[in-house]
Simulated scan of single mutants.
Amino acid sequence: MSQAHAPQRSNPARQFLAGSLAGVVASSVLTPLEVVKTRLQASGATRMRLDKILVNIMKTEGIRGLWRGVGINVLGVAPARAVHFSAYNYFKTQAGDNFGIHGTPQHLLAGAMASCTAATVTSPIWVIKTRVQLQRAPIKGQAMTAAEMAYATPLSAIRAIAKTEGFPGFFRGLTASYLGVGESAMQFALYEALRGAYLRAYHPRGGPEERASLPMGASLVLGAAAKLVASAVTYPHEVVRTRMREIPPEGSGGRPVYGSVVSTVKTVLRQEGVRGLYGGMLPHLVRTVPNAAILLLVVEAVSGRGL
Rank of each mutant, 00 (worst) to 15 (best):
E238L: 09
G259D: 14
T31P: 08
Y235F: 15
R195Q: 13
T264M: 06
D51T: 13
E209I: 00
T60C: 01
R14K: 13
I294F: 12
V302Q: 03
S231H: 05
P32W: 09
Q142G: 01
L33M: 12
T117K: 08
G76A: 03
V299D: 07
P7I: 00
V55I: 08
A22G: 15
T234A: 09
R275N: 08
L40G: 01
Q187S: 05
L190V: 01
V24Y: 11
T288L: 03
L285H: 03
V55A: 13
A218C: 06
L199G: 05
L228G: 07
L190P: 06
L33E: 07
R287C: 06
W67L: 14
T31Y: 08
T164L: 05
H5S: 15
P168L: 07
L21S: 13
A119K: 02
A110D: 14
I158W: 09
V77N: 04
H203M: 11
S10V: 14
E272R: 04
G180V: 00
S43A: 15
L295I: 03
R172K: 07
V121M: 11
L295Y: 04
L282N: 02
L33W: 10
G223R: 08
G273R: 08
G280C: 04
Y90M: 14
Y151N: 15
R245P: 00
A147R: 11
W67A: 05
P12E: 08
A292K: 01
Y90A: 13
F91K: 04
V298N: 02
S252P: 10
L50I: 10
P124A: 01
A4W: 09
A160I: 11
R172V: 00
V221W: 13
A87T: 15
G253Q: 06
S303L: 03
H102V: 09
V25P: 06
V121D: 10
M149Q: 14
A162N: 14
V77Y: 02
P154S: 09
Y258A: 04
A225P: 09
R68C: 02
L277S: 03
L295V: 03
G206I: 14
F85D: 03
Y198L: 11
Y198M: 09
A119D: 04
E300G: 02
S184D: 06
T145R: 02
T234P: 08
